[in-house]
């Protein structure tokens, strides 16, 4: 049946895929910005001496890491209305992605900060810097360098994860494929086109990650790609 592969149908549906591509792109960017904020807050809490701040962050990170994103997405999608919060699917989806990726980003930033050697901290202490000055002038500038490549890795994961939003009928790239597949009974055309679009995003981000690693002169450290 694949010999009937219809490029003409794909062309016909291209505007839909274009919209889906744009939707996936911008909802990923918004979610990633949210995830960065969540991650920075979690990481800051996790690095405090106070148990009262540390413990909630640790529990949150572990809970997110030990459960699937799809279950988290359904938790919000079916659960938020229960709390009287009836939000559009798109907002629920972005929220789920940001809350999920935030936990991973918190760990990436923490690894970056902890990778700075004890000697750097001591040099800062010895020259009379306060904790805030050491963080701002010595540790963070170095940590951000080693953090950028794995953060881009996390961005790749987030873009792929965003496909799950199609299951709560957010109009994005995978949803476009599903529509073509069900309207015309052409799953091959639908999903191969979808996959190709994701590959464009993947290779784009991947070369950006490789470029940034070379530019920053750091070896990429472990990420969840």
């Amino acid at each position: 049946m694949l010999e009937n592969f219809s490029f003409r149908t794909i062309v016909e549906y291209l505007p839909l895929f274009g919209q889906g591509f744009a939707a996936t792109l911008w909802l990923s960017i918004v979610s990633f910005a949210g995830a960065l904020a969540v991650g920075i807050i979690l990481c800051a809490m996790n690095l405090q001496r106070s148990r009262l701040l540390q413990l909630p962050a640790k529990i949150y990170i572990d809970a997110i890491r030990a459960t699937p994103l799809l279950a988290q997405l359904y938790f919000l999608y079916f659960g938020l209305p229960r709390l009287g919060l009836v939000l559009p699917e798109l907002v629920v989806g972005i929220l789920a992605l940001a809350l999920n990726s935030g936990a991973y980003i918190a760990e990436i930033i923490r690894a970056g900060i902890l990778s700075i050697s004890r000697g750097q901290v001591e040099a800062g202490i010895a020259s009379g810097m306060t904790y805030a000055q050491r963080m701002r002038l010595v540790i963070l500038p170095q940590a951000i360098r080693v953090t950028i490549p794995p953060l881009l890795g996390q961005a790749i994961v987030l873009v792929k994860d965003s496909a799950l939003l199609s299951l709560i009928s957010v109009a994005e790239l995978t949803r476009a494929g599903q529509l073509l597949a069900s309207d015309r009974f052409m799953p091959a055309e639908g999903f191969i086109t979808t996959a190709a679009c994701y590959l464009v995003l993947y290779y784009g981000l991947k070369s950006l990650a490789a470029f940034s690693a070379r530019w920053l002169g750091v070896r990429p450290i472990g990420s969840r790609t």
Binding site: D161, A163, L164, T174, I192, T194, A195, L199, Y203, K206
Partner: peptide, 10 residues
């Protein structure tokens, strides 16, 4: 480079 959901559908 592709979402697992898309792979399953394929």
């Amino acid at each position: 480079g592709t979402p697992f959901l898309v792979q399953i559908f394929l």
